[in-house]
Computed example of a mutant assay.
Amino acid sequence: MAIWKGVFPAVTTKLTHDGKVDLKATQNSIERLISNGVGGIIVLPMLGENASMSLQERESIIRAAVEVAAGRVPVLSGLAEITLEAAKKNALLYKQFGAQGLMVFPSLGYKTDHRETVEWYKGIASATDLPIMIYNNPIAYGVDCTPAILKDLAGTPEIVCIKEETGDIRRATDMYVEFGDRFSIFCGVDDLIVESSALGVTGWVSGMTNVWPAECVELFNLCAQERFSEARELYHILTPSFHLDVHVKLVQYIKLAEHLVYGAPEWTRAPRLSLVGQEREYVISTVCKAMESLAARK
């Protein structure tokens, strides 16, 4: 079974001004990420506007990502559904499209309890032999895969990794104490990566890596080498921008940041709208300040 580690950017899906999927721009961004040393990529995450995409669009995005990755890094796909039947069906389809792993959301339509959450993930794991990363973001989705739930999933070999996004820095240690190395633990929020690395996480699902891949890979590697004094210097520059990753409008914020840094299209699909007014100016000023500091650092 796969052992994932390193920086896995949650890739934004590039769109045209009228909301159509821009596969060429998406592939260009993936090439940029891989060329800068990421350990894997995840298409169709929350940042990829998964829930707003048709199945045909999802297929085209997965196939395009696999094509450009060309085996250099694993390509995972987000799997975000309402019913278990749909989740199992699409898990199998995504494998046929070329995905090498799945980042599985809880049900988008219902807040499952302990028993239901266990059955949700076991059911999806039974549909395909693809390795699974559990997307644990109770702040956004209201379902927390606690250590007690993970204990009931530990016997499911397809579940190999947890994207830890509770915001509780103690959770990583609690999981290591309970499970040892049974699961790979990935930090799931940008503004906790140094803290999480100090506790031993082996991967990072990152939003702002879309914007600054080289710098985010450098930051992760400094932490992995326990060069924390150097890591903190870079972290202090990037953290104000990393805070954009934990806002409800992270898709708009990160796409605008990508546009500012390397000219990628910032467009989103309704109901998300492009940023305007003071909110837009805040994102621009935050990102531009980081750009200036990074340029001065070189």
Rank of each mutant, 00 (worst) to 15 (best):
D152K: 01
L153V: 01
L153P: 01
L153K: 00
L153G: 01
L153Y: 00
L153I: 00
A154W: 00
A154T: 01
A154Q: 13
G155A: 04
T156F: 00
P157F: 00
P157S: 10
E158G: 03
E158H: 03
E158R: 04
E158C: 00
E158N: 12
E158K: 07
I159P: 00
I159T: 02
I159K: 00
I159D: 00
V160L: 03
C161L: 11
I162P: 02
I162R: 01
K163Y: 02
K163L: 07
K163D: 13
E164A: 08
E164C: 09
E164Q: 08
E165A: 15
T166A: 08
T166W: 03
G167H: 02
G167N: 07
D168V: 13
D168Q: 11
I169K: 03
I169F: 05
R170S: 15
R170L: 12
R171N: 09
R171L: 15
A172M: 11
T173Y: 11
T173R: 03
D174S: 14
D174I: 14
D174V: 15
D174C: 12
D174K: 14
M175W: 03
M175G: 04
Y176I: 12
Y176Q: 14
V177Q: 14
V177F: 13
V177P: 05
V177K: 03
V177Y: 11
F179K: 01
F179C: 04
G180Q: 09
D181Q: 13
F183S: 01
S184R: 00
S184N: 10
S184H: 04
I185S: 02
F186Y: 14
F186I: 03
F186A: 11
G188D: 13
G188N: 04
G188W: 02
V189C: 07
V189W: 05
D190W: 03
D191L: 10
L192I: 13
L192D: 07
L192Q: 15
L192A: 13
L192Y: 08
I193V: 15
I193Y: 02
I193N: 07
V194W: 07
V194D: 09
E195Y: 11
E195K: 05
E195R: 05
S196L: 09
S197C: 14
S197G: 08
S197P: 04
A198F: 09
A198L: 12
L199H: 05
G200E: 04
G200M: 06
V201S: 06
V201N: 01
T202I: 09
G203A: 08
G203S: 06
W204L: 07
W204N: 07
V205L: 15
S206H: 06
M208S: 10
M208F: 06
N210P: 06
V211M: 01
V211W: 00
V211K: 02
V211N: 02
W212H: 12
W212L: 09
W212T: 13
W212Y: 13
P213H: 12
E215Y: 06
E215L: 10
C216W: 05
V217F: 04
E218D: 13
L219F: 12
F220D: 05
F220H: 06
F220A: 06
N221F: 01
N221M: 06
N221Y: 01
L222E: 13
L222A: 09
L222H: 05
C223Q: 04
C223H: 07
C223W: 05
